[in-house]
């Protein structure tokens, strides 16, 4: 595995001048008979925040584990910072910082000592770096407290500090906003932005779509172990969108029939008010007037029409995991491939 990877056919992101920070080609991983990744092709340009999105069980955590050598792929290739990488080439990870799944620490050690433990493994880190990263994530004052006494958010911050220990060129973060309070999320966002301004690359795996929308430059969406879309966030948002109309429940069949002509995915869900329903049409927000006109032509008068374009709409339309039409408790958790 000495040849550089060819450009993945699904990549829609032009490479940065100095190439890719991370690439995978045909990455396959199964747990027994259950496939987790089925030929994943990914291209992460250098110097960006890359949002890696997917529903539960899509293969996000499996990819993270593969990238840091926790598990071995069944097939496929990985390139990190322009160099081929296999799970035995562990020293390649010295330039990578990671927070994979939930952060784990020795509860009986202080936050500072936990970082010392990590700093002694892998890439050598100057002793002063421990205090630097503690200060960076706002834990300087609590660094001597036992990690077992930390809140979930503090543990998350300590996990991010651990990922930053070796001043990595590539940062892999799994749900970094998990447990953080609003102030912590803003601070994390600023920190990650600061890192990309230094030319570093941040790869964020998440299903918190609004957070990724605020953070990412480039987005990859995975479903069923395959990359189904990759591109610049701005491009994806310009393509995605929705128009929602609130109608009387009794007029739902007529409304659905009237809107079927748009040829776009349509879903209905109960509205807040009794006897009302909301119909979501996956079309661009500029077509709201057309929806209004189509409903009126069918003799249906919407009490409210709204439109928008967000990552959630794009994600839902691509992964087909929209909420159900019944709104019953427990609905909406299953995947609708």
């Amino acid at each position: 595995m000495t040849q550089p990877l060819p450009t993945p056919p699904t990549a829609m992101v032009p490479p940065a001048a100095d190439g890719f920070a991370l690439r995978t080609q045909g990455l396959v991983k199964s747990y027994g008979a259950r496939p987790a990744l089925q030929g994943l092709d990914l291209a992460v340009p250098r110097g960006v925040v890359y949002g890696f999105l997917g529903p539960n069980g899509a293969g996000k955590t499996t990819l993270m584990r593969l990238l840091v050598g926790l598990i071995k792929p069944n097939a496929g290739r990985i390139e990190i910072l322009g160099q081929p990488y296999t799970w035995r080439q562990r020293t390649r990870l010295h330039q990578v910082g990671s927070l994979v799944e939930s952060p784990t620490f020795y509860d009986y050690l202080s936050g500072r000592d936990n970082l010392r433990v990590l700093a002694a493994s892998g890439a050598r880190v100057p002793a002063s770096r421990v205090d630097e990263v503690l200060a960076l994530v706002g834990l300087a004052e609590r660094g001597r407290d036992k990690a077992g006494r930390y809140s979930l958010g503090m543990k998350q911050r300590l996990g991010i500090a651990a990922a930053l220990l070796s001043d990595p060129q590539l940062l892999l973060l799994d749900e970094p906003a998990n447990g953080l309070d609003p102030g912590g999320i803003v601070a994390m966002r600023e920190t990650l932005r600061h890192l990309t301004r230094q030319g570093k690359t941040v790869f964020v795996s998440s299903h918190i779509l609004p957070e990724v929308q605020q953070l990412a430059d480039v987005v990859g969406i995975v479903n069923g172990g395959r990359l189904i879309r990759e591109g610049r966030l701005a491009d994806l948002l310009s393509e995605g969108g929705h128009v929602s109309a609130r109608v009387a429940e009794a007029e739902l069949p007529a409304s659905m029939a009237a809107l079927a002509g748009f040829g776009a995915p349509i879903q209905a869900r109960p509205a807040d008010q009794p006897g009302q329903a909301v119909i979501d049409v996956r079309i661009g927000p500029e077509r709201a007037a057309e929806v209004n006109r189509a409903l009126a032509a069918a003799g249906v008068y919407a009490s409210d029409i709204s439109s928008g374009s967000d990552l959630e709409s794009v994600f839902l339309s691509l992964t087909a995991t929209a909420p159900t039409t019944t709104g019953a408790p427990g609905d909406g958790w299953g995947e609708r491939a």
Binding site: V68, L70, R90, V100, T104, F105, Y106, L118, G122, L165
Partner: peptide, 18 residues
């Protein structure tokens, strides 16, 4: 049990040396 080996290996530490 605590998952701490994950963070060690992910830093590129040799499993055998550890």
């Amino acid at each position: 049990a605590w998952g701490t080996i994950r963070a060690i290996v992910a830093r590129g530490e040799s499993r055998v040396r550890y």
